[in-house]
Nucleic acid binder design. Structure first.
Lengths: 146, 146
DNA sequence: TTAACTGCAAACATTTTGCAACCGT
DNA sequence: ACGGTTGCAAAATGTTTGCAGTTAA
């Protein structure tokens, strides 16, 4: 059967090759925000002869088709995720590297308000919170970056 | 006489070479958010034999000393500015490339609130609004990116 | 004097591209 | 069949680094 992402590719007029199916599968199954390198690792586990250029090219067309989104968390490389219906922002755990998503209506309102004061309309924004877990006496269990 | 930035360098225990004086001067006089390349151009106008490595190395130590800050507006390169007493965020004009600074207390409050809900303390954040000028019948005069 | 700094060239990491072969449709 | 897609290797980009020589303190 055809996955949801594969359907979107077809809708976008993209040829569905084996490589793209592999990439689509990896992207669909990712619950984190993997980098191109990480995606490549996962792809080669399925298809060892997929090439990095193909991955990058595919990521590009998928992003142009608005099927995925790339983010730059200032690490020197991009991270990718499937586009979601509702836009969201990110909280990056500085200890574990985990990324949490959030969406606060006040934030949306506020950014428009601020921009308007300058005489602008916001086209897109980037809000990232880099944070560390609150130390509590309960000793929250935390994963540490490998 | 010694500029304010030169004084800060000395306080940070940095050796004050001619190159660093040049870089300090260029940074101090910049009213925009120049890239390393742009800074290099301005530096070589003062001292044609300054090297790009020296510029990058100096930018690095200045940032480590909290004297300047680097920003990544997703253009593939960093932009730099002197650190200010009060932290601020940026609104990037997508038409002209101009960068406006703002600081809204509600935003500060909100980000802490959001992080707390996840069990985090915000160490630093990044808020960038990418925006276009509001079209008005008055026809606001606008600079266009070169 | 000497540890810090510089310039150069080479290295780096991520991402892009030219080109000939390949494969969905 | 043919136009989009692939793999490879090479290029592009922004930034960092090793090293030998220089300089501020």
């Amino acid at each position: 059967m055809e996955t949801q992402l594969e359907q979107k590719c077809r809708e976008a007029g993209l040829k569905l090759t084996g490589q793209r199916r592999t990439i689509a599968k990896v992207l669909t199954e990712a619950t984190d925000h993997p980098s191109a390198n990480e995606l490549f690792k996962r792809c080669t586990e399925i298809d060892p002869k997929i090439s990095l250029s193909t991955l990058y090219r595919t990521l590009r067309v998928l992003e142009e088709a608005r099927i995925i989104q790339s983010h730059d968390f200032g690490e020197g490389f991009a991270r990718f995720e499937l586009s979601t219906k509702d836009p969201h922002d990110h909280l990056i755990d500085l200890v574990s590297g985990d990324v949490h998503e959030f969406n606060h209506p006040d934030l949306e309102r506020l950014k428009q308000f601020i921009a308007k004061e300058f005489g602008y309309d916001v086209v897109r924004h980037r809000v990232e919170l880099y944070a560390i877990p609150i130390k509590s006496s309960q000793g929250k269990r935390r994963r540490v970056r490998s």
